[in-house]
Nucleic acid binder design. Structure first.
Lengths: 121, 121
DNA sequence: TTTGCATATTCGAGTGGGTGTATATAAAGA
DNA sequence: TCTTTATATACACCCACTCGAATATGCAAA
């Protein structure tokens, strides 16, 4: 029951929904990319990512200086369904398009160039 | 965006989830039945039902002295999906079984005997 | 119209969550 | 080691939310 309400309270914040939508689109993002896309202070983004991690919606891995967040892969069905609903909902918001546009202009950190030569970024 | 966060914050309360699960099971319930099933003060139930109505998850209709709550039928897809996820999640909680058991013992108000002679209740 | 039942609302108190600012930690490179 | 970049945390403040208790409203039957 507490798991359940944690999930939905994690989903009940606009900034966290924006983070989830971008990660759903890009698979994996680091904090500084999210800061660039959402144009919000870094501690704010970091705290919201923590909330999403504690709700078991995101997981993080550190790579050099960067911390990369992605969707958790061991969610119960209803949790994944709730997450999908949230992402689907925010995709219909104008904010999502703006965030995507800004994200595309954010310089990719070298660690995000998966499968390529890191110098190529 | 505000619609979206309203939905998820409406879903982020254990009492509201219990209400939604019972209504999903019984289609339509009045406040006094919910009070009996959840064993909580009537003003509390009433306030939570109001929150769910304002999030467009429930609708209410008055029949004599009773107010009957049921799922809204004009939800966007992602909203219905979120609601289904919430109900699915709470069904796996022990609390749900207890609520169902208590609900089955609550005396049905005459207005809930759909399609039958009301005296038969 | 008075009484009783069902539901909704108001009020004040208490609590948790979000935020900005500042600072701490972690890692890499000079 | 010192600096830079990236991320996390600490602290104080404020606001929204929840609650219990009391009261108001709506409806029907006597």
């Amino acid at each position: 029951m507490e798991n359940l309400t944690n999930i939905f309270s994690a989903l009940s914040d606009p900034i966290r929904l924006r983070i989830l939508a971008l990660i759903a689109k890009e698979t994996e993002l680091c904090v500084c990319e999210l800061v660039g896309a959402l144009q919000l202070p870094q501690p704010k983004i970091s705290r919201h990512c923590k909330v999403l991690s504690e709700a078991n919606l995101l997981v993080s891995r550190r790579e050099a200086q960067w911390v990369l967040y992605s969707q958790a892969d061991d969610m119960p069905d209803w949790s994944r369904q709730a997450l999908e609903a949230a992402v689907e909902g925010i995709k219909q918001d104008a904010q999502y398009a703006e965030d995507c546009a800004r994200l595309s202009k954010v310089e990719r950190p070298p660690v995000r160039c998966d499968g390529m030569e890191k110098q190529a970024c």
